[in-house]
Structures are given as structure tokens and as C-alpha cells.
């Protein structure tokens, strides 16, 4: 079972590193729409982490809320802010360099 534990460890390491990297990019990227997409991807990866930690209940809740509701809420809020999807900048005349 030596190879099994090694593969399991590399899986966990990828998930952990991916989580940290996605969180960092979601916070640091200058484009707000990109930040939202990265955050949605972060939620998807988090569901895999719950599965590895033997918490399928939490994974179910995360899958339903992270995949469905949070993304829809954030995108709806982003459009109501008046942020153009093409550039991630404001459409109205109070131009903000984001």
C-alpha cells in the first residue's frame, strides 16, 4: 500500500496548495469578475477537501451552496454594481481604476 499513501498525499498536497493559491489570486487579482470566478473555483476545490476529510455532509452543503448560490449571488451583485464584464471596470462615468 506504499504507492497508495504516496498518491493520497500528493492528492491532498495538490488540493491544499490549490486552495491557498486560488484564495490568494481571488484576493489579489485587479479584475473583480476574475476574483469572483476564482472564488467560485475555490468553493469547488473546498468540496473536494471536505470529501478527503471524510465529511460528506459538509461536502453536500458546500456543493449545493458553493456551486449554486454563492456564484449566482456574487455575479448578480457584480452586475448591479455596474461593472462591465469585458474589462472588469465600471461602466458609469465615475471611472474607478480597480
Amino acid at each position: 500500500m506504499e504507492g497508495m499513501t504516496w498518491l493520497g498525499w500528493s492528492f491532498d498536497a495538490f488540493v491544499g496548495a490549490g486552495l491557498l493559491w486560488l484564495a490568494w489570486r481571488a484576493l489579489a487579482s485587479p479584475d473583480l469578475f476574475k476574483a469572483v470566478v476564482l472564488f467560485v473555483a475555490f468553493g469547488l476545490l473546498l468540496a473536494l477537501a471536505w470529501v478527503r476529510l471524510e465529511a460528506p455532509d459538509v461536502a453536500l452543503a458546500e456543493a449545493a451552496i458553493g456551486a449554486g448560490l454563492t456564484g449566482a449571488l456574487l455575479i448578480a451583485a457584480l452586475t448591479r454594481l455596474g461593472i462591465s464584464m469585458a474589462s472588469g471596470r465600471h461602466r458609469n462615468n465615475n471611472k474607478e481604476e480597480l
Binding site: V51, L60, A63, A64, A67, A72, A76
Partner: peptide, 22 residues
């Protein structure tokens, strides 16, 4: 079950994007 819920709900974010943003 988790995979099923995932597959069903992944569409919601995409539809929100198409309807509201794009």
C-alpha cells in the same frame, strides 16, 4: 450524491452569468 448535487447545480452559476452579466 455529492457528485449528483454538484452536476445539477454547476449550471446555476453559468446561467446567472449568461442572464445577468453577459
Amino acid at each position: 450524491d455529492v457528485a449528483l448535487v454538484f452536476a445539477l447545480l454547476a449550471a446555476v452559476t453559468a446561467i446567472a452569468f449568461v442572464r445577468r452579466a453577459w
